[in-house]
Simulated scan of single mutants.
Amino acid sequence: MDWLGPQEWTAVALSLKVSFWAMLASLPIGVLTAYALARWRFPGRQMLNGLVHLPLILPPVVTGYLLLMTLSPRAPLGAALEAVGIIFAFRWTGAALAAAIMGFPLMVRAIRLSIEAVDPKLEEAAATLGASRLKVFATITLPLILPGVLTGAILAFAKAMGEFGATITFVSNIPGQTQTLPSAIYAFLQVPGGEASALRLVAVSIAVAMAALALSEWLSRRVARRVGA
């Protein structure tokens, strides 16, 4: 892929890094949240559901602004985290956080639908045989919902690859540090003669998105066949 320049390669590599960690860090929380929404009944359940889906409704710039106001070094929480060496604002870690938040609703939705499709009687039968709640989840629920977990993870990864509004608001557009694929495309379109570079990155974005969707379908079908067998 010599047709990509150094700055373009850097943007692609950073996007893959940000998307991978955004997906990986949010996956355990996504599974727990989806399970809580699908199986538990508790005060504030509808509020939790609303908060989970809020990034889909709010403009991405608003999400990025809220992150900046909460986690910037001048904010109380941001200053406390900086004191222990955790910095999000204007760092690639902040880009991963913003991407994770924007992809979280898609992940939770896919996993929740899988959990709701599992017959609760299977879990109840295992519990009556003396299995703990954790063991029931690990041996019964998780294998059955694995296609949904994989689908949710890959959808979140693909969403993270395309995230722009929240990311650029929270971590800016710093080449080599926070400039992801969408930010690089935007930057190239702002300079004369940058259209060719922007077009190459658009092609990469489309290829990655299509590959992620194809992988999601393939993995889901493969795991579903194994679970069915």
Rank of each mutant, 00 (worst) to 15 (best):
I111W: 03
I57V: 15
A99Q: 05
H53I: 13
L113H: 11
R74P: 00
P59L: 12
M107P: 01
A110Q: 14
L54N: 06
L106I: 11
A127W: 06
I111Y: 02
H53E: 13
A95N: 03
P55L: 09
L54G: 03
D119F: 15
I57C: 12
P120L: 08
L77K: 04
T70A: 15
A131V: 02
F104R: 03
D119T: 13
L66D: 01
L66E: 02
M107H: 05
A117C: 07
I86F: 13
A80L: 11
V118W: 06
G78R: 02
E123I: 09
T93N: 06
A131K: 10
S72P: 04
I115A: 03
G85I: 09
I86H: 01
V108P: 01
A127K: 14
E116N: 05
G78E: 02
G78P: 05
P120E: 06
F88C: 01
H53D: 15
P60A: 10
L113Q: 15
T128L: 11
L67T: 02
L129P: 04
I86D: 00
P59G: 13
P60F: 09
E123Q: 14
Y65D: 01
T93W: 10
A99I: 06
P105W: 07
I101V: 14
A75L: 11
F90A: 10
G85Y: 08
L56T: 11
A125K: 07
A89N: 08
S114T: 08
V61E: 06
L58M: 12
L71W: 06
D119N: 15
P76S: 13
A95H: 05
L122A: 09
A96P: 05
A80H: 07
G130S: 11
I86W: 13
I115D: 00
F90M: 12
G103R: 03
A126W: 04
G85D: 07
L71S: 01
S72F: 06
A83M: 14
T70F: 03
V118Y: 08
L54V: 10
I115K: 02
E82F: 03
A131I: 00
A100E: 04
I57N: 04
L56P: 03
S72G: 15
G85N: 10
A110G: 04
L81A: 07
F90L: 13
L81R: 04
K121E: 12
R74W: 08
M102I: 14
F88Y: 10
F88W: 08
P55F: 08
L66G: 07
K121N: 12
L67C: 05
F104I: 07
L77W: 10
A99R: 03
M102T: 10
L81Y: 07
I101T: 04
A99K: 01
M102C: 07
L67Q: 01
E124M: 13
F88A: 01
Y65P: 00
L113K: 10
V118I: 12
P120V: 07
L97I: 06
K121F: 14
L56F: 15
T63N: 09
A126E: 06
L106C: 07
T63P: 00
V108M: 05
T70G: 03
L106D: 00
T93R: 09
T63S: 10
I86T: 09
T128C: 15
I57H: 04
T128I: 13
